[in-house]
Design a protein around this nucleic acid. Structure first.
Length: 661
DNA sequence: GTAGGGTTAG
């Protein structure tokens, strides 16, 4: 008996020796068997709490009622906060204080963490004040928790939507004063970015006043800088770490990687990659998914894939990262293949998995596949997710089902700039220019969103499709003058297209010539060349083609068509020859045709090649899994390929061909 | 006490 007691006492004095739930339960059982439980309850509770076992901790905590000792309170507050029950954690903290129990240093990090996650600004500040009052501000754990809290608060301001900030109702209940509204009004006047950066400076001050700093302190500040997009400051902190004789760890690297990706700094990415390999971090899922993003953003998706494939243990985020990397780089079928592979690997898709893969269906106009995924989304109860809903709006609009796109948009609980833009673009693509413009105005005037560059592409597209010259120019001017957005190639292309379609060819030419030279890509000149063909203006077409030929081979084809339209067949043949000599293979296409069959077509230098011909998606998945390709060409399809030159064949894959008939 | 991935672009 005595020896058991000795063992138990040793274990209870060193609770870190107990590493698993079953060990904790074993010692609990031994105590129940041999000793009066109440003596050991708080210690046992602290063991369960360290293992983050909330239900077990709660049962024990309730046995300590009505007067739990400090150790019990500390444990339950920590356990609530580690299990994301932040409100309960703060509630317990308040109850503990109300009972006059004197807190110690260990309770504050959990409480501050809860304030951080709940975005309880006032409450967090008052806890900070309490920390100072009891003289614990030099504690490094508490200091780190404060750094984390203020960084997140700075981010909240930084991230704030231009219109309104949602303050958790609960904070008003707990803190009963609402200055958030006033703060918000102030922030509206200041540039959001400056506001976030300004807040980060005060986080830096907290950091500087800390008498002792460890790796976590640096990591936390680096994360704050990274999330506020303060790239240089984040990198500087890594250098400062070195000066303080602290070595960057896996957290440091993965904290800084998102902003490296954002700035597309491939060299810094490689440097970090190298450091990671040298220090054995190259199999860390966090770092690998960060690096995946860096390479994907720098158009080096092959490198992303290599990293991913070398990862011994691939978690849900690793899969999401590589799928998103493919889709964002236009490798839609590869993204779909990986999505399917992920399912085969028994990784359950989470909301982000769907919002990453749905755009691929949109771009491929693969409606049946998109519908299957939509079904999966509904079965998983993810349909309320804003990212997913926006991608569905885009997918259905691109696949020709504007009504369903609209219905999804209308049933969304809340909209953001992206969902509005997806809907506006959907209407624009379907020629519903008035709807698009009225949605844009509703978004801007009634909902108070500040349109960005993409939103203007959408509304300008609507105007150009409907030939609404004045409205288009009005929006363009508004973008430049009112919103101070520097026009991009897409905006110029819309205006050039708009003027061209309206027959104002010379005006369009003048407009493009007045653009900054680095923006005059072929995408701006091509619509004008197409307009020259429609309006049979050969002289201008020749002038325009001169500007394009270095950029693009499609230009010669358009020029050739212009010559044909006025009967100059020899010139037409010449330019067509020039175009065919420069032809590049295009990307693959999905086509639904011929009685509901799906055809997967890829072009090579000789022309289109049919890779698979299938009756349903399941069959396609099967065939792609087995890796056999080149399944032969059925005669009818062959005829289609023969009578359609490659460029028209590509047009077949657009929405009208794929939508449900 | 600290970390990750996502939606819109004629």
């Amino acid at each position: 008996m005595e020896s058991i007691q000795r063992i138990i006492n040793t274990l209870l004095r060193n609770p870190t020796l107990i590493k698993s739930k079953s060990e904790a339960k074993q010692i609990h059982a031994q105590i129940l068997k041999s000793f009066p439980i109440y003596i050991y309850t708080p210690t046992l509770l602290s063991i369960y709490s360290k293992l983050n076992l909330l239900p077990e901790s709660l049962i024990l905590f309730n046995t300590t009622l009505p007067s739990p000792p400090l150790l019990a309170w500390k444990s339950i507050i920590k356990c609530y906060s580690s299990n994301a029950s932040f409100l309960q954690s703060l509630n317990s903290f308040l109850k503990m204080r109300a009972l006059g129990i004197h807190h110690d240093r260990n309770v504050f990090p959990s409480v501050l963490k809860s304030c951080t996650h709940l975005m309880f600004f006032k409450f967090g500040e008052s806890v900070h004040a309490c920390v100072i009052r009891v003289g614990l501000e030099s504690d490094v754990f508490i200091g780190n928790a404060l750094l984390s809290m203020y960084s997140k608060f700075a981010l909240q301001v930084f991230d704030e939507s231009p219109k309104r900030r949602t303050v958790d109702q609960n904070e008003t209940i707990l803190v009963s004063s609402d200055t958030a509204g006033q703060n918000h009004k102030k922030c509206e006047k200041i540039d959001e970015i400056m506001c976030g950066k300004h807040k980060m400076q005060s986080v830096r001050k907290v950091f500087e006043t800390m008498p002792e700093r460890d790796v976590v302190s640096y990591n936390t500040l680096i994360l704050g800088y990274a999330q506020s997009n303060m790239y240089n400051e984040a990198l500087m902190m890594i250098k400062e770490m070195g000066k303080a004789n602290l070595k960057p760890d896996a957290f440091t690297l993965s904290n800084v990687l998102p902003v490296v990706a954002e700035y597309m700094d491939v060299w810094k990415g490689k440097e970090i990659h190298g450091y990671g390999v040298r220090h054995g971090f190259h199999t860390n899922e966090y770092i690998v998914s960060g690096l995946t993003d860096v390479y994907a953003n720098c158009n080096m998706v092959e490198d992303s894939y290599r990293l991913f494939s070398l990862l011994p243990k691939k978690d849900c985020v690793s899969w999401c990262s590589i799928i998103a990397a493919c889709v964002q780089n236009g490798l839609f079928d590869e993204g779909l293949r990986l999505f399917r592979e992920m399912l085969s690997a028994n990784i359950k898709p989470v909301p982000i998995s769907f919002s990453s893969i749905i755009p691929a269906c949109g771009h491929l106009t693969a409606l049946p596949l998109g519908q299957q995924l939509h079904g999966y989304i509904i079965r998983s109860h993810f349909e309320d997710n804003m990212y997913i809903a926006s991608s569905l709006v885009h997918m259905y609009a691109r696949c020709g089902n504007i009504k369903l796109a609209m219905r999804i948009f209308d049933t969304m609980k809340q909209h953001d700039l992206v969902s509005w833009t997806a809907m506006i673009m959907g209407c624009a693509l379907h020629g519903h220019a008035y709807d698009a413009i009225s949605l844009f105005e509703q978004m801007e005037m009634e909902e108070g969103f500040r349109p960005n560059s993409v939103a203007f592409v959408a509304v300008l597209t609507a105007c150009s499709h409907a030939g609404m010259v004045n409205e288009g120019l009005k929006f363009f001017n508004k973008m430049v003058k009112e919103y101070k957005i520097t026009p991009d190639i897409e905006h110029y292309a819309c205006i050039a297209d708009l003027l061209g379609r309206a027959g104002k060819l010379e005006e369009a030419f003048g407009f493009i010539c007045s653009m900054p030279e680095n923006k005059t890509a072929s995408s701006v000149w091509l619509p004008l060349l197409a307009a020259c063909r429609v309006h049979k203006n050969v002289e201008l077409a020749e002038k325009v083609a001169m500007h394009i030929c270095e950029f693009d081979t499609g230009a010669n084809l358009l020029l050739s068509n212009t010559y044909s339209s006025v009967g100059r067949y020899k010139d037409a043949a010449d330019s067509r020859r020039r175009s065919s000599s420069r032809k590049k293979p295009a990307g693959p296409a999905w086509i639904k045709a011929l009685g509901g069959m799906h055809i997967y077509v890829k072009e090579n230098i000789k022309g289109p090649v049919v890779y698979s011909l299938i009756n349903n998606m399941e069959e396609f998945w099967e065939s792609s899994k087995m890796g056999y390709q080149d399944r032969g060409i059925i005669p009818l399809l062959y005829v289609i390929l023969l009578i359609n030159p490659i460029h028209s064949f590509r047009n077949l894959s657009s929405s009208n061909m794929v939508s449900e008939h």
